[in-house]
Design a protein around this nucleic acid. Structure first.
Length: 783
DNA sequence: CTATGTAAACAAC
DNA sequence: GTTGTTTACATAG
């Protein structure tokens, strides 16, 4: 019941969330969300069948089939022993067959089987389908250059985002930089067109262009594997708001985004919110931003713009793309459930609120792939295609924002990663206008010696950048020096796709300051009218205050906690005791020395520092300076282990959008850890008191690397970052997804995309392709 | 009980 | 009107 006058009177909502016949039964307000036509066929079967039916066989046992779920995508099954020539031949044939408008994505997988051709299948029909698909995409995407560009599947590491932001000029740069394959896949799974329309946020464009409904699509049906377009739009994405916010923010180069941009990003990537969801979803977004400590609001230098960022210690750098891939690889029950629910329950019975986020039980920690050294190979100069030549520049251009991307210029990037002979994924975007995109592909293959595919050797990653005038290797580093920290750039280039989750050890979460912060709620403590920095992880409140507060709070926390959710503070699980070492905390510089990664300027993680002179962004002052006790907050609860239960990050089966949790073990490396720990157990008294967080801030110089994304650009750049500029980037790079290959992308909107996924058999690897599909299901040879 | 979603009151711009 | 913060309640697991 509501006691407080302030409390909104909550009317009984959803009194009857019961399975009702009609969707309408859910809520009167429920808009006609559910399009009654969402019959979902059982995908697996359907897709399989279709795939088989549509597969085409080529010499050497090479098979080309439609991707079961991805539109415009074909899977090329290449027998182990097939030689490059055969591949080329097959692709060439296919290319001719399809013409320039054919499918624009190809996933190459190697099948262990020799050319023992399984029953060849009839290609004809399928081919036409493909063509059609391509056309659809082409049509939709083609017209909107900018938009399209955005939507192109792009590996996370791509620099696009950055560029965007910078281009935008304003910090608000809405960067839709999405990177992702996901984009297309998720939306695309419904129909790639969706993306086309929603890609970007040039708002104007957006408004006009995004009439998804109008899209002439229906491509999916061909494969029978994907949901209908309508479904895709009407179907709520399986991600929680928190997750989506993370995706949005992480999609930007600077890992920050304005509220508005977050809205836009979500709308663009999840049409559901744009077309179906009730306007209240935005409220929910705001609610989430405010609620979760992991989201930190930063104010621009001029104080006019506020950006939402993800606290580095909590940021897993998850992107939609990454998550999507993970999901595909190991479809977890939850996700599947969504689908299932949809199919199985009567529309009306679907619960209004379905779990969007995998629960803790299914947390997934980004898979740590073997650390491979990336090799930048000499661009194959041989690539004769004019195409190749033209391809190069755009990438560069993108990196250095000054370079204007010529309409026809595109970049070709090519990367091969051979991990124990396992797979590679090439993501190529070729100029659509090229005579035959296959040529490009073939050239690449040949050039790269793909024939050697089955190379099973030491783990090795090679990356090839092809460029015309470029010096053979675009020095990775030199590519874009301007706005991005070296580390990042390199990362992008070298690893177009970056696994966004660095090893836990790398997270600064354990830093004393953070611990302290996370363990306490400085908010409540400030009895002073001073504007407090809302959730400043690193900003602070006096420890003493925290302590006292905690004490007070503790008594009621339990009781009230359950009832009200205050800020969900980040809190290292390992800390049982609120350690207030904070005030005395080691300064960053020290950390930097000892833990370079903490000092990484390129890393978003470096943000803590803004507390220093500039006190950084502050949250809107909280009006209720009431005694903390007034509202017990979970976050304040120092020893509520529950709040930060260690969810074994080890799990790899699900998705975890929750903030990074640091395992106890992670502490190990910290030299001071022991001391800190001890202190933590020590009563806070030892810590100096401050009347306000601000005071604390002023008195305590925290040398943490300042926020790379500082509200003000200048600041960001200038902030001296202690330590090597590589901290996180390197580590990130170290963990690379095998599935990520290279991306060629182009700013040119008239590009087609070819996505190659080359798998090398012989690995203990499961048959799952990088996209998580079990190809053996479709391709017997793979078994 | 927790995590999440939704609604709403309010405050500051 | 937008952005943020909070509180309250609902739901699913």
């Amino acid at each position: 019941m509501r006691t407080s006058p302030r409390r909104p009177l909550i009317l009984k909502r959803r009194r009857l969330p019961l399975p009702v016949q009609n969707a309408s039964g859910e809520t009167s307000e429920e808009e006609p969300k559910r399009v009654p036509a969402q019959q979902e066929p059982s995908q697996a079967q359907a897709s399989k069948e279709v795939a088989e039916l549509n597969s085409c066989k080529f010499p050497a046992g090479i098979k080309i089939i439609n991707h079961p779920t991805m539109p415009n995508t074909q899977v090329v099954a290449i027998p182990n022993n097939a030689n490059i020539q055969s591949i080329i031949t097959a692709l060439t044939a296919k290319g001719k067959e399809s013409g320039s408008s054919g499918p624009n994505k190809f996933i190459l997988i190697s099948c262990g089987g020799a050319p023992t051709h399984p029953p060849g299948l009839q290609p004809p029909a399928q081919t036409s389908n493909d063509v059609k698909k391509t056309e659809v995409i082409t049509e939709t995407l083609g017209p909107k250059p900018a938009t399209r560009d955005m939507n192109l599947p792009r590996p996370p590491g791509t620099v696009l985002g950055q560029r965007r932001e910078s281009c935008a000029g304003s910090e608000a740069a809405s960067c839709t930089l999405d990177n992702s394959l996901t984009n297309i896949q998720w939306l695309g799974k419904m129909s790639s067109d969706g993306l086309g329309s929603c890609g970007i946020k040039q708002e104007m464009e957006e408004k006009e262009n995004c009439h998804l409904e109008q899209r002439p699509v229906k491509v999916e049906e061909a494969s029978g594997a994907s949901m209908s377009w309508q479904d895709s739009v009407s179907e709520r994405p399986p991600y929680s708001y928190m997750a989506m916010i993370q995706f949005a923010i992480n999609s930007t180069e600077r890992k920050r985004m304005t509220l508005k941009d977050i809205y836009t990003w979500i709308e663009d990537h999840f049409p559901y919110f744009k077309h179906i969801a009730k306007p209240g979803w935005k409220n929910s977004i705001r609610h989430n931003l405010s609620l979760h400590d992991m989201f930190v609001r930063e104010t621009s230098a001029n104080g006019k713009v506020s950006f939402w960022t993800i606290h580095p210690s909590a940021n897993r750098y998850l992107t939609l793309d990454q998550v999507f891939k993970q999901q595909q690889k190991r479809p977890n029950p939850e996700l599947r459930r969504n689908v299932t629910i949809k199919t199985e329950l009567p529309l009306g019975s679907r619960r209004k609120m379905k779990p969007l986020l995998p629960r803790v039980s299914s947390y997934l920690v980004p898979i740590q792939f073997p650390v491979n050294q990336s090799l930048v190979l000499q661009p194959s100069v041989k690539v004769p295609l004019p195409l190749a030549a033209s391809l190069m520049s755009s990438e560069l251009a993108r990196h250095s924002k000054r370079v204007r991307i010529a309409p026809k210029v595109s970049v070709l990037g090519f990367s091969l990663k051979r991990d124990s002979g396992r797979l590679e994924m090439l993501d190529l975007q070729l100029p659509k206008h090229s005579a035959n995109k296959f040529e490009c592909l073939l050239v690449l293959l040949a050039d790269e010696g793909v024939a050697a595919l089955p190379t099973a050797g030491p783990v090795k990653e090679e990356k090839l950048l092809l460029g015309e005038g470029l010096s053979p290797l675009l020095p990775v580093q030199s590519i874009k020096e301007e706005e991005i920290q070296p580390g990042e750039e390199t990362l992008h280039l070298v690893r177009p796709i970056k696994v966004e989750s660095p090893p836990l050890e790398e997270w600064p979460s354990l830093s004393p300051s953070f611990k302290e912060e996370s363990s306490h709620s400085w908010e409540d403590s400030s009895h002073s009218p001073t504007p407090k920095s809302k959730k400043s992880y690193s900003r602070i409140k006096s420890p003493a205050q925290c302590v006292s507060e905690m004490l007070v709070i503790k008594r009621r926390e339990r009781r009230e906690m359950s009832r009200s959710r205050r800020k969900q503070h980040l809190r290292p699980p390992c800390l049982d005791e609120p350690e207030l070492l904070f005030s005395e905390g080691p300064n960053t510089s020290q950390w930097a020395t000892e833990f370079p990664f903490l000092a990484d300027s390129s890393e978003p993680a470096a943000q803590l520092g803004y507390s220093q002179a500039e006190e950084g962004p502050f949250k809107t002052p909280i009006k209720d300076m009431l005694p903390i006790s007034s509202t017990p907050s979970k976050s304040v609860l120092p020893r509520t282990p529950e709040s930060w239960k260690l969810t074994p990050p080890a799990k790899v089966g699900g998705l975890d959008f929750s903030p990074v949790r640091t395992p106890h073990s992670a502490f190990g490396p910290l030299p001071d850890s022991l001391g800190l720990m001890d202190l933590s157990t020590t009563p806070l008294k030892s810590v100096p008191l401050f009347d306000s967080p601000r005071e604390l801030l002023n008195s305590e110089p925290f040398d943490l690397p300042s926020d790379p994304f500082g509200s003000s650009c200048p600041t960001d750049i200038e902030v001296p970052k202690a330590g090597p500029p590589e901290p996180q980037a390197p580590s990130l790079s170290a963990n690379r997804s095998l599935t990520e290959g290279l991306v060629l992308d182009t700013m040119n909107d008239s590009l087609s995309k070819i996505l190659l996924d080359i798998s090398f058999p012989g690995l203990e690897e499961d048959p799952l392709g990088p996209d998580g599909i079990n190809w053996s299901q479709f391709i017997p040879e793979l078994r």
